[in-house]
């Protein structure tokens, strides 16, 4: 299988803290791959390192055959990577419409994608002219994902989409993520193991700045010992 993204043995520091001490992640084209692991294991930092927001000091990151190391976040994004950060990072003072417009990379991006976005998240149509800050947590999450869909991204990095959301909304988000995975490859960070195991094809475990295990989600589901050891859930 062809990998759209290959992260090999990256080391990342935040301040003086050595957060990633050799993380390797392969993301096959067209897959939904999930990063699993406990709080503080380095999952978010892995995504931020890919985006160039916390650039790695060692190791390689290759997207569609091109190296991302040393590039600024905006040029990494322009190569076709969408980022949906933890806590959504919706622009609260901007309207829903402006939150989407700002993500356009070419004129007319939003017009072309509007149908897809409103099909996935019909609520956004009703909220279109309200300020982002007035949306509920679930609506903000939908907007954050929709924002990453506006340009033609081929890889989406989504950080903890289920965080703080009610089960009904999580169900809705899961079906939306499944649908958008038909258009782009998805690399997900998810604490909620049940959600992750139902969504993802592949997993990579991140633990204390390393990536000790990876493989097919179907295999991990059977492997209680592995789940216990790295995730602490049964």
């Amino acid at each position: 299988m062809n990998n759209i993204l290959e992260v090999r043995d990256i080391h990342t520091f935040i301040g003086q803290f050595h957060i990633l001490e050799g993380v390797t992640v392969a993301v096959p084209q067209g897959s939904i791959t999930v990063l699993l692991g406990r709080n503080g294991a380095g999952k978010t930092t892995t995504l931020k390192s890919i985006m160039g927001m916390t650039p790695p000091t060692r190791g390689s990151i290759v997207f569609e055959g091109q190296s991302l190391v040393g590039k600024r976040p905006y040029s990494i994004a322009q190569m076709g990577i969408g980022y949906v950060p933890e806590h959504r990072a919706i622009f609260k003072e901007l309207s829903v419409a402006e939150n989407l417009q700002i993500a356009e990379r070419h004129k007319g991006d939003l017009a072309r994608k509007a149908d897809l976005i409103f099909e996935l998240f019909p609520d956004l149509k009703r909220l279109y002219h309200l300020p982002g800050g007035s949306l509920s947590g679930g609506q903000q999450q939908m907007l954050a994902i929709a924002r990453a869909l506006v340009p033609d991204n081929r890889l989406l990095l989504i950080d903890e989409p289920s965080e703080g959301l009610a089960p009904v909304i999580i169900e809705h988000l899961m079906s939306a993520i499944r649908k958008l995975a038909e258009q782009a490859t998805v690399l997900l960070v998810e604490q909620n193991f049940r959600m992750a195991s139902r969504l993802a094809d592949r997993y990579v475990i991140i633990d204390e700045g390393h990536s000790p295990a990876s493989g097919l989600m179907a295999d991990l589901r059977q492997d209680n010992e592995q789940i216990q050891r790295y995730l602490g859930v049964a």
Partner: peptide, 17 residues
């Protein structure tokens, strides 16, 4: 206006802040 709120996120959207 977006940059006033969160310039790192603006950059992550592909804009040279």
């Amino acid at each position: 206006r977006a940059g006033v709120e969160d310039s790192a996120m603006v950059e992550a959207l592909g804009i040279n802040v």
